[in-house]
Each structure stands twice: as C-alpha cells, then as structure tokens.
Amino acid sequence: MASVANGVSMMEKKMAETEKKKVIKPLKNFPMEEYINSGHRACQGCAEVLAVRHVLKAIGPDMVMAMATGCMEIISSPYPYTSWNVPWIHVAFENAAAVASGVESGLKALRRKKRVPDKDVTILAMGGDGGTTDIGFQALSGMMERGHKIIYVCVDNEAYMNTGIQRSSSTPFGATTTTSPAGKVAPAGQMTWKKDMTAIAAAHGIPYTATACPTFFNDLQKKILKAKEVQGPSYIHILSVCPTGWRVPPQKAIEYGQLAVDTGVFPLYEVENGIWKLNRKPKELKPVSEYFKGQGRYRHLDEKLTAEIQEKITARWNRLVELSGADKES
C-alpha cells in the first residue's frame, strides 16, 4: 500500500517528467499540410473525414482525386465552396472507379504525348461502402481488372449514412439501420453478413489490398504509401466509425475503431502480391460484446445472437490467421 507521502512524491516525479516533455517536437513522418480544409460539414466526431485527412496527407499534393457521391462529397463541395486543396472531381455515385480510370488513362496519354508536365501524379478514387460494395461494385471490378494505376479507397461506415442510415451490403449482421430494423421477423436487424469486399478485391489478383482504420493512423498511412508505390491497382478498405449512424457519442469514434480491431470484428491485414499478412495480432481477441456495448445499432442483440456473431468472427479470424501464416509464427 502506498502511503500518502509516497503518492505525493510520485506525483512530483510525474510532474517533473512532464516538465521535461514540454517542448513540442515536430512529428516524424507525418505531413503537416492539410489537403481537406477545415470548414467541411461532416458530423461531429466523423472518423470518415479523419480517414480522408490521413489518406491525403500520406499521398501528398501530386494527386488527382475522383470521388463518389456520398457523405464525403456532400460535406465538402456545396457550390461555390470546396474543402479540397487537391484536384478533385465528382461525377456520380457508382462511377468513381471509372472516372478515375479516365483520369489515369487521359493523363497517361497526355504525358506520353508531352502535353502535360512529365511528373508522377497519383490517382485516388474514393467511395463509401454503398458506392463501393453495392452500386459501384461493377465499375470498381472493371478498374481493378483493367489494371489502372489507381489507389481505390473505400471509406466504410457500414450503411448509407448520407441518405439517413439505410443498410448496405457492408452493414454487419446484427446492426439495425432504417431499412434493417430489428423486429419479430428479423430479430438481428441486418440478417445478412457483411460483404467481404477486401477479399473480393484481393481475388482480382491486384498487387496490393489492405484494410485500415484511422485509429491506427500510422498503419493507415504506411498502407497508403505502399499502395502509391505499386504498379497497378490497389484497394484499401477503411473502417470509418460513424457516430451518427452507429449511435455512439462522437468523442468515442476513435475508441470504437480500436475495439473493432481488438475484437477481430475488423482485422487489420494486407494482401501484397498474393501474400496475406496480419498487421495486428492481439495475443487474445476481446469478446465482440465489448465492441457492441454502447453502440445504439446493436442495442437489441441478445446473448444468443451475440454468441452467433462471436462464432462467426472467431472463425473468420482463425481463417485469416491461417491464411497469413501467423499461426506458424512463434
């Protein structure tokens, strides 16, 4: 038992340590430039716009961005205002991958014909889970199959949040949305399992596929930098906590990202030239109930449904561990 006197001295020690740290040291490997300006109209605590901020910081100014209709488009571009400090185009909902294909092909031809400056320009396409896994699925598949050198980023907040929280194929089993409400007939709310878009992207045989989450910003930025370097298409699937749609307090947006990863609900992994690799492997997964707790969209789940989800999450995690050879590591 520590005495009161001991406690005071501990506090003094801590304060002395704090004194030492008082100088702000510049962040290493973390660009200070902002490419999405303040003044955007995202909801309070939006982790999706945070993900966008980190993605753009990692890529830097030499880029062109094509964006699908959705939250990030609406919050950033009410004419005559724009939040973007990088060249940006929005055409429609389902075609960010195709518009980016046109941007890439056009710049490629013009560079070859010496009609634009001879410099590398990264092409970024971005859509939400609806714009990627549902309505933009075909355009994305085409982009990946044709081999365009484009980074496609899906910012996944697990429902159509922009239109008022409707279910998508990326909404997880057990989550309620306005079109997957829980009731006697559909006790889980969403009665289907989340489409595994990352595995589908990897199945296209593209050079680089990964999952990421802004809570793990270093991992996220590292993956974007990797994607930037590969010759050909890359696909990054980013879990983006949506306080409005998930019904969680805005200040907890980062914490829920942590819990999603620590429970195995959203594992961080990458597939590089066909090699699967787990990027974060906790010694023991936390139970999914810890992730569900406090999320309004999961409030209706009983023990039986939670156990059913736990089983599925554990099985998928084990498969991932096996695929990545992590089970053979010491």
């Binding site: 303040s38 003044g39 724009t82």
Partner: peptide
C-alpha cells in the same frame, strides 16, 4: 460549375 479557389470552404465557420 468548376471551383477555382482551392479550400475556400474555410470561410464557412463550423
């Protein structure tokens, strides 16, 4: 409807 002033949404104070 092209916007030629990058990041001008900063005039909107959230």
């Amino acid at each position: 409807g092209v916007i030629t002033e990058p990041g001008n949404a900063s005039c909107y104070h959230t």
